[in-house]
């Protein structure tokens, strides 16, 4: 395990693997995105209650899930880098934070647009919406911390601590709709009993979730490679790549 982590943490190894990985995740992302959009906007029937406005779900839910997922990545990378001092996880966390912030913004704004016709308001201060807004603040704080320190290692450590403290917000966001009475409805897919979305509506949603996840991986890989090149610009393998 330790050996594997260090091999994975080796910048050159990561760089080589990520080039192969990039190609595949990009293909999967594009295919799922087109399929999900077509399925969600054209094939899926209108909802019995919400009509066509429910189609916002196909961008809202994947964005919201990714906002949580990327924060877990930040905290996990933070823990790994605090324990093992691995450069690559610092980089992954640093480049992921703006992507996570953008997905959080997307979840909040599409949710507001969806809330207006259905709930009758853009925004309410219920537990779900408030905790998701706090997530956006956590991301912005993390990004600000990264630019506050010139020493990247101190910045990574400070960011790791913030990410680990903020991780408490993730279960709060997820369970807020069950723990407290909220205007936001309960979970549709992640609950354990019968799924409460019709199959024709569910399949495009799953495709969009995969598309958003692979989108994040693809963008994070591009950014991580750039950072690796900067870090390792004096090593021979980078010079060889740039020489071509």
């Amino acid at each position: 395990m330790y050996k594997w982590i260090h091999q994975f943490g080796s910048p050159k190894y990561f760089y080589d693997i990520s080039l192969h990985l990039s190609k595949w995740v990009t293909i999967v992302c594009i295919v799922c995105f087109i399929g999900g959009l077509y399925g969600g906007l054209v094939l899926a029937p209108a909802d019995y209650q919400q009509g066509d406005s429910f189609r916002i779900i196909y961008v809202h839910v994947p964005a919201a899930w990714m906002s949580l997922f990327i924060y877990v990545i930040l905290a996990t990378s933070g823990a790994i880098s605090l324990i093992w001092h691995i450069k690559i996880t610092d980089i992954i966390a640093r480049v992921s934070a703006p992507i996570g912030a953008s997905f959080t913004f997307l979840a909040l704004s599409t949710g507001a647009i969806w809330g207006k016709p259905m709930w009758g308001t853009y925004w309410v201060w219920d537990a779900r919406l408030t905790s998701e807004l706090i997530l956006l603040f956590l991301y912005l704080g993390y990004i600000a911390l990264q630019s506050a320190f010139d020493d990247k290692r101190i910045a990574a450590r400070a960011g790791a601590i913030l990410a680990l403290i903020g991780i408490i917000n993730i279960p709060i966001i997820h369970y807020s709709v069950e723990w407290w009475s909220t205007l936001h409805q309960g979970p549709t897919i992640t609950k354990l009993d019968k799924p409460s979305i019709h199959l024709t509506m569910l399949i495009p949603l799953i495709l969009m979730v995969i598309a958003f996840k692979t989108f994040y991986i693809a963008i994070a890989l591009i950014k991580t490679r750039s950072e690796i090149l900067k870090y390792e610009c004096n090593s021979s393998w980078v010079k060889k790549i740039l020489g071509n």
Binding site: P45, Y48, W119, Q185, K191, S196, H198
Partner: peptide, 16 residues
Amino acid sequence: QVLAKHDENYMPPEVA
């Protein structure tokens, strides 16, 4: 102010 609280179920009108 009156706000609607919708549920987490989604289905086509014919199914409903």
